[in-house]
Design a binder for these strands. Structure first.
Lengths: 160, 160
DNA sequence: GGCAACTGTAACTATATTGGTTACAGACGA
DNA sequence: TCGTCTGTAACCAATATAGTTACAGTTGCC
């Protein structure tokens, strides 16, 4: 279905910022962790800023950080900020209105797709960025030596 | 998210067949209701046949019909037959393994995406093609005169 | 048997979305 | 005022879906 990684990347980005605590991160740093181009990240940061999830500052010593506490940002907030469509789409071209099924299948499908979207949103609304960071920490402690300095200097250093 | 209408079209197709009762439908008829090309429909019918949701017959007087009763086909069956990916995708390129967040965000994201997929599947598993037809009928009776013969002769005639 | 009506499928094009890249104007701290 | 950032435009590449033509193979019917 989704051929897009926008949600995954956005969660990654905000998790990095929660991890960084209140230190503004440069788009280059974020791009290096996500393994993509800094412009791709800056584009996404603009969308996240429009939804008031991050704040960015231009100029030397600039960067972006969370606009509010990690426990006050849900995955639903992120989803709504970067994925505007629902889970499924209806027909590209409207069905034949001369067919008793075609003329009304859209109504029924919309009901179904609404139920699906609601179910997805219920799941996402119950997970915050703080939860993601918490789920991350056990993995990190076993995978990375604590306070290990990363090889690429602008990649985040493990905390704790 | 989904830029694809495959699920919507597949539900439409199977609903048509349930509506047609046991009469095999030609790909041209189906395409005319969906408002697309017959080859697009035949491609999809092949996928639906592989998942044993429809049976098709070649040759003169051929066509496709449901492989089992409408109440025995759920939207989850259809979803799994035509949309192989989950609701969200992970990063296109794997994140930086030298970053404590990058190296483990995939694990956490996969947990989340599993929860989302499960929620979607729970919704779809509880709706059958028979349910869709039932939800369709009230719309139809108000929108189309009963037993009205469609203008294009190969579009289905309303029943009841 | 032979014809006409179907499906199955290959091959190609069109369209849309996402992601990657370069380039540059403007903001800002030192 | 210089170097370091963000914001953004413009363009290209990659991918997936949809649409189209064409045709081999299957089947019912005369």
């Amino acid at each position: 279905m989704s051929t897009s990684s926008r949600f995954a990347v956005a969660v990654h980005v905000l998790t990095l910022m929660a991890w960084a605590d209140d230190e503004p991160l440069k788009s280059e740093q974020v791009a290096d962790s996500v393994n993509t181009n800094a412009v791709v990240i800056r584009r996404m940061l603009c969308e996240l800023a429009e939804s008031q999830l991050v704040v960015s500052q231009s100029g030397a010593m600039g960067g972006s950080k969370l606009a509010r506490q990690p426990e006050q940002i849900t995955l639903l907030d992120i989803y709504q900020a970067v994925e505007n469509r629902g889970v499924f789409s209806l027909h590209r071209h409207p069905p034949n209105r001369d067919c008793p099924v075609g003329v009304n299948i859209g109504t029924v499908l919309n009901q179904v797709l609404d139920e699906v979207d609601t179910a997805v949103e219920r799941v996402l609304a119950n997970i915050t960025i703080k939860d993601v960071v918490s789920r991350l920490k056990p993995c990190v402690s076993t995978a990375v030596t604590k306070r290990k300095v990363m090889r690429k200097e602008h990649v985040l250093t493990a905390r704790n």
